[in-house]
Nucleic acid binder design. Structure first.
Lengths: 219, 219
DNA sequence: CAAGTATTCAATTAATCTCTTGAATAGTAG
DNA sequence: CTACTATTCAAGAGATTAATTGAATACTTG
């Protein structure tokens, strides 16, 4: 009976995908790719890995079917192979958050008071933005902003936030977002804006999830 | 700046969950656990692993927060730590199916003609079962059947199917299911029932997904 | 065609993972 | 208390993996 072998072969294929998700560096690559296409050395730069190492990780991701590469001129641009990869990534994060006690501890340690930073849901933001009630702040680097962002958002990378803080004297509540639910940039931004006495909250999750939910995107 | 460290720590936690999913044996354990509680040696028996090895894999799954153990008397009963684990498992399978070319090839190799085995969706089965139009066949072992099954289903393990085939002379279409979308038992069952000239199809996915969808369960 | 750039390949070392084996623990039953 | 069972722990051999380094490939530009 080949049924046992078949089953095992099949699970081995699933395991290959699992293995691709078993390295923090590869997950970080995936998170960046969730923003859109990136070349190998852009990815190497943001993750701090060597180019060769980045390339090897990308190939593992490709073999697992999670990313695809497109060669144009000198460069190879990688991107997620489908939206279901974002779904998978989020399912993984969900389980990790709900079950791994260490994550809770980490989040609480690093992010001071949790309740103070209660996030605003996507749909609520969309509604209030239409009414002009909020100022949406995208704290990602300009390249990522350029590749797509929440309509009406203004782009101030975290590093430059300090110098623009005074100009932000609107009555509106400020809503900051960045790459994903745990991107620390948005937490930091909210904390700093609040120090200046403004009302500020964080968007629940980040841009990839916004895009995935089919909400409008501006370029 | 601890932001980089925080991020890396967080991804390391996610990676721990990914690592738990990186072994075919552990995935097989998860699939069995999706049926319900199991003791260590039941799991060792069905997977064909040694008890010690099974125990170690279970502990990795537990550290990743995917399963939980409950000690009662001599035995320790393990179960999934939540429904989101099934969601994660299915997301993983989905991605693997959609992207890994090898899986397609495998499925086609082992399962002969694919179109002939077109599965019936859960809701359609539920509707037709209420009208008494189908005979639902659960081909899992009796213990798994006892722990919960689709209402009205009859339980004939695959091994005993041959001898009951003649008694199955209803006009109804027969719908077989087992553990999950790729559980081979149901494929085999459908093939055999058809050889006898009956109409037969496979339920799309298996019992854990049925339960997860909130559909009625009988004990 | 030559020089330069982006990416990949190949080889190495150190670290990690899997499975096996045999012993230790915790609970049950006589 | 002793024998027995189910599970876990601990140690070791063999295989797999990650990161580093240096070279090879593929493409563009002058």
């Amino acid at each position: 009976m080949s049924s046992g072998n078949f089953k095992h072969d099949l699970f081995s294929q699933f395991a290959r995908v699992g293995k691709a998700l078993s390295s923090a560096n590869r997950l970080e690559l995936l998170e960046f790719l969730a923003q859109g296409e990136r070349s190998v050395d852009e990815l190497a730069t943001v993750t701090g890995l060597t180019v060769a190492n980045t390339s090897q990780h990308l190939q593992q991701l490709r073999q697992a079917g999670l990313v695809a590469g497109r060669k144009q001129g000198l460069k190879v641009y990688y991107s997620l192979s489908g939206d279901d990869v974002i779904t998978l990534f989020n399912a993984l994060r969900s389980v990790a958050e709900r079950h791994v006690a260490d994550v809770e501890r980490l989040v609480n340690t690093y992010l001071t008071v949790k309740d103070d930073l209660e996030p605003i849901p996507r749909k609520e933001l969309l509604a209030r933005a239409k009414q002009g009630l909020v100022t949406v702040l995208d704290v990602r680097p300009p390249e990522e902003f350029a590749a797509g962002h929440v309509p009406g958002a203004i782009n101030i990378p975290l590093k430059e936030l300090e110098q623009y803080l005074d100009q932000l004297e609107s009555e509106n509540e400020i809503v900051a977002y960045c790459r994903g639910a745990h991107c620390v940039l948005a937490f930091d931004a909210v904390a700093r804006v609040r120090q200046k006495g403004h009302k500020a909250r964080r968007l629940e999750e980040g841009f990839p999830e916004w895009k995935l939910a089919g909400l409008p995107v501006e370029r």
